[in-house]
Nucleic acid binder design. Structure first.
Lengths: 191, 191
DNA sequence: TTCCAGAAATATCTAACAGATATAAGCGGC
DNA sequence: GCCGCTTATATCTGTTAGATATTTCTGGAA
């Protein structure tokens, strides 16, 4: 079944903000959509080629020799609207932390606690980032009609980070009773 | 860089619970780890072959002709411990809902609200599932040393579902001010 | 001014992976 | 004895991440 490339949606979406080179596109996707989306060069180049062939984007002289800036066309905008309306294809879950915790008895309590503390610290860093970002965007784009939409995505990130912090504390408490069983953990050889 | 196959970890982990056929393995991963992990047949068969060649699993007579049951070996258990100790490779984010909301002005407020309501309903279904699962596992595995570990993963799912519900409400409120503008997707492209 | 380091930029290749699909054996009901 | 279902094995294709090769441009040191 279709298994439509979601890359197309992200690329057209980014170009709908303003024209860019492929390189800048990658940067924009990483910096702006990075909280909930990612694309690799390996996808971006072929996708831009296909979109050009279909007339959804046009290639213009880039900022230097051999460089191209891509501009979205009217048909590209229509195509974007079409793609955004397609049903969401859920990404299959792949959470390495939970996989390790599930087999925590094999991994050892100590290492589990370590992983949880790391995850919590990461989430705290992210949380600070989201809070700063929300303030910055709210000020800079005060009158943009895009603002409320962007704020919903930032809020998702912020809440998710808060959630991880609270969960990590609960998980640490759940593992609190388990004795630090020296038989299980740390096989010296790996890493 | 290594780009270690995470499939190996999940397969060995599942087999560490008890011997299974490849088919049952897929079922087990879907039903037991399904909240945070997924594997496809396309990965499971080649991985089992490779693990057999390395002596980490052994192939036994299966429940019927041509069928094989796989058993984890001692070296397989050691390998699992090694893999669990490797650093977590984070899955690149790919959230189709947030991608659509980010470009919400192009998609239209109405559709955004629809998507949010769907997401909330999904989360409510999931939440009920997690709560039931936590009760069931707590009772059935009351004395299992694995229980606290499993409970941390279920709690992650439950909290995540609760989080989506609260976020969806906030997002709907954020979009509340925007007029329903049926013609919304103005391709004026001014932006 | 030339040289060099590093950033910007373009492009390609491989391994990992999801999902679809082909096939067949056993099993119950009718 | 046929049909449909589940169990089971296996493979193929399109999607994707990430590594890497290469070139052009820019700023600073010699």
């Amino acid at each position: 079944m279709a298994r439509r490339s979601q890359t197309e949606t992200a690329v057209l979406g980014a170009l709908s903000m303003h024209p860019m080179t492929a390189y800048a596109l990658r940067e924009a996707i990483r910096d702006v959509l990075g909280h909930f989306w990612s694309e690799s060069f390996g996808q971006i180049y072929p996708t831009l080629g296909a979109l050009e062939r279909q007339g959804h984007v046009e290639r213009r002289e880039g900022p230097r020799s051999g460089s191209s800036t891509f501009v979205i066309t009217d048909s590209g905008t229509a195509r974007l609207r079409e793609l955004l309306n397609e049903p969401i294809t859920a990404a299959p879950p792949r959470n390495g932390l939970l996989l390790r915790l599930f087999f925590g008895r094999t991994l050892g309590v100590r290492k589990c606690r370590e992983l949880l503390l790391e995850a919590k610290a990461d989430a705290e860093r992210n949380l600070a980032g989201y809070e700063g970002l929300a303030r910055k965007i709210s000020a800079e784009e005060k009158d943009s009609p895009d603002l409320p939409y962007v704020l919903t995505t930032i809020s998702a990130g912020r809440r998710s980070a808060e959630n991880v912090i609270a969960w990590a504390d609960e998980a640490l408490a759940l593992l609190g009773d388990i004795p630090a069983d020296d038989t299980t953990p740390t096989n010296g050889e790996s890493s």
